[in-house]
Design a protein around this nucleic acid. Structure first.
Lengths: 208, 208
DNA sequence: ATTAGATTCAAACATTCGTTTGATTCAATA
DNA sequence: TATTGAATCAAACGAATGTTTGAATCTAAT
């Protein structure tokens, strides 16, 4: 299909530019300049810039969260008591795999995602909240089961901290590379996730 | 001084609007509308919108980081071995006090600060990096001394996670309130900080 | 009272933005 | 081949943006 070609071309260009300079700071003319398509094509295929951003997010986010839920369900099918680390891996692992995907997107998209979490735009927040809510609805009971001693209020707060650590790591892993003088390697996604899981597991288990 | 009145009025208005809708989504005309001053006054006193944002950030950030460093130095003067929790409190405590400051700003500013951390604008990143670097330069050795068993690479990663959890909590504590159905109180800053310190301390102490 | 500098003001500037338009091209069907 | 609907194109639209201008106003020292 020719339309999908143009559509995907626009999505790819928008994804990279949105991730690098932020959606607000990226004009449609920059997008079509990179995609080498006509300006009107964006509105023909997506309707508006905002709708384009939603499509950019949904393209990766929907499968990502589906994979998260599938992993959690598989773990629960395998054993009655799922360890905290397994849950965290189901939550963080798919993001890891996405970031190493040789296809376009990868870390660029994760940076964009991390940014959108603190983006003020309402429509985008609704989209993200819907996705986050669907994931949280399934993961929250799993966390509660794995951490029966942690009061619900504390658990909610800690999951909030978790989201922050995750989003910031997604969005700005490169900065740590510069900051540490090359000591930390932001391309070592495997090690990054492992360290993040260790950190989060300890924080979640802490006694109040 | 009359100039300071106008200057401060603009700073206050910009701070609130920048925090609520984000710097990019806030126009100077919205700022001067709230401040009830002339549009040209912004450029007369600050030179540009970007410079205004820098002033908004610096006004709170510079004293905040100065207080952090002072608290750390005081703790080190008092005892040779400063506990991890004391260090964390020196890092997080001033932000807590700022957020409860009855003066204008408070939580609004913290939300803005959290947002700017993931903002793509280069000039602002430079300002933040300068501030963060100054703080990190003093806190990093303190953390190392308090956590001698944690390898430096892991410690750097964990401090990166820490920044993420902190920034996200600053920026979006209200969202947790809605999300938890009122179970978590985002106005209970004291409890919030306490929980954050507990979470972070456990994560930082974890065995690799 | 006059002067000089600092501050405020209304108005316009040039640019950029997202969006729309209407003609044109293309692909596939009948 | 003729026709139809989808897809692309150059061009323009109106609105909003940050910034500049130059005159008016205020303040305080001479």
């Amino acid at each position: 299909m020719k339309q999908k070609d143009t559509k995907t071309t626009i999505l790819d260009a928008a994804e990279e530019l949105f991730a690098r300079r932020g959606p607000n700071a990226t004009s449609l003319r920059q997008v079509i300049g990179r995609a080498k398509v006509n300006l009107a094509a964006v509105h023909y295929h997506f309707g508006s810039k905002e709708s384009l951003l939603q499509s950019v997010l949904a393209r990766r986010l929907v499968p990502l969260n589906a994979e998260r839920l599938a992993l959690l369900e598989e773990a629960e099918r395998r054993s009655h008591r799922v360890s905290l680390e397994k849950i965290l891996e189901a939550l963080v692992g798919p993001a890891l795999r996405l970031s190493r995907d040789p296809n376009k997107g990868g870390r660029e998209f994760m940076r964009l995602l991390g940014r959108c979490f603190t983006e003020p735009d309402e429509k985008i927040q609704e989209l993200l909240n819907r996705q986050v809510a669907a994931v949280a609805e399934r993961f929250m009971p799993a966390f509660q089961k794995a951490l029966p001693k942690v009061p619900q209020v504390d658990l909610l707060w800690r999951l909030h901290f978790l989201v922050g650590a995750m989003a910031h790591t997604m969005a700005d892993a490169e900065r740590l590379g510069e900051f540490s003088g090359g000591l930390c390697d932001p391309d070592d996604t495997e090690g990054m996730i492992q360290r993040l899981v260790t950190f989060l597991a300890a924080g979640l288990k802490a006694k109040a």
